[in-house]
């Protein structure tokens, strides 16, 4: 008689085997269907995590490309400072710890060597955050006729809640309050 697989057992069995288990079509018992359903859920979770990790890898690659493109002073044709390596490092860490329910941002160089992380819903609805050489993040938003700015600490392990709320408010245009 089949028994439900624990997460640890699923890990030991291996993803490939679990995939076969999840998509096998020979079992017809209630228990087998339950197990197959559970395995399918695990497979979906793993694949979703892999997809997210893949997207974050792309974002991290974009940071590296940007830092390389703007590695020299005057990259803007004027007096811009080169992208600060600490800013790039912090931006990467920010992406790594960004919650899965928060969309990934676009990146832009700033003339003081910081990196701008931008969540752009439309021309008049955006959230923009600067990552520089310190652990304080400067941010600003436009939400129609409403606008504001703020500063939050980033410890490298957790995105400040008000930053997450601000991003989701703009991108979801929901009812989450922004703390100004």
């Amino acid at each position: 008689m089949l028994k439900p697989l624990s997460t640890l057992e699923a890990g030991l069995v291996g993803y490939a085997a679990l995939h076969v288990y999840a998509h096998g079509n020979s079992a017809i018992s209630v228990e087998a269907r339950s197990v197959r359903k559970a395995a399918h859920a695990v497979v979906e979770s793993v694949e979703r995590s892999q997809a997210l990790f893949g997207e974050k890898s792309v974002a991290i690659s974009q940071i590296a490309t940007l830092a390389n493109e703007c590695a020299e002073a005057g990259w803007d044709g004027d007096e811009a400072a080169p992208i600060n390596w600490m800013a790039a490092d912090t931006a990467v860490q920010f992406i790594r710890v960004l919650p899965d329910n928060v969309p990934l941002p676009e990146f832009a160089p700033e003339p003081d060597g910081s990196i701008s992380l931008d969540w752009i819903q439309s021309r008049h609805r955006l959230f923009s955050l600067s990552v520089g050489s310190s652990n304080r993040l400067a941010y600003a938003w436009l939400d129609g006729s409403d606008r504001g700015h703020g500063v939050s600490w980033f410890d490298g392990e957790r995105i400040p809640p008000r930053v997450v709320a601000g991003i989701l408010e703009i991108m979801n245009h929901g009812n989450i309050a922004i703390w100004s």
Binding site: D112, S114, S116, L126, S128, S130, G132, A138, Y139, A140, W141, L142, R147, G148, H149, G150, V151
Partner: peptide, 10 residues
């Protein structure tokens, strides 16, 4: 910087 970003966004 945050104030500048707000104006730049406008």
């Amino acid at each position: 910087k945050a104030k500048q970003k707000e104006l730049a966004a406008i």
